[in-house]
Amino acid sequence: MIKLSESTKILYRMLAFSWLALCCTSCEPVDDGYGSYAYYWTTLCAYKPDSVDGMEIHVTYQADNSVWADSATWTAKRNNRDYKSLDHDNVCLECGDKCEDIFPSSKGNKISVDITFECDDKTIALPTFVIDKSIINWGDDRIKFRFVELDERNIHGAYTVETFIPPEDTSCGKFVNYAVLRLP
């Protein structure tokens, strides 16, 4: 058995505490602005086509029997959301703590997105886009989708095209390129 002097013991303890302190700081999850509980956070943004006057996005979050909904509208006069993420005509809905509450313990998570356009006092609905297990690996990915008219020359950043959701009612326009883009 090696006998250590009191001063050596103190030195070793200090080293051990320093190592623990450093480890704790380095093991801290990187704060990316979404907090450290980002697994079930969702960010959904819809971009208004130039040819429509207004737009609404309505999102229903469903976890087994728990249902929670949120919506945002864009009009030329006002935008009822404070959070406008970018410099364009868009509205964004974020689900943070609420989604963290309802999704982790649930087995049947589903998010439904309904978007409507307004033009000349008409309101047309786009097909409902459903985010479920077939699209998202729940719990591993932050859920980020963008709804926008696809013109690759005018969109920057990384994304994949999930699908197109043109409206059946074409009285405001066909919007065949209105796409659902999934962000990594």
């Binding site: 005018n154 969109i155 920057h156 950043g157």
Partner: peptide
């Protein structure tokens, strides 16, 4: 045009 975040604008990526 070296911005990589998602956005509407000229495509630089």
């Amino acid at each position: 045009y070296s911005h990589n975040a998602f956005g509407i604008g000229q495509n630089p990526t």
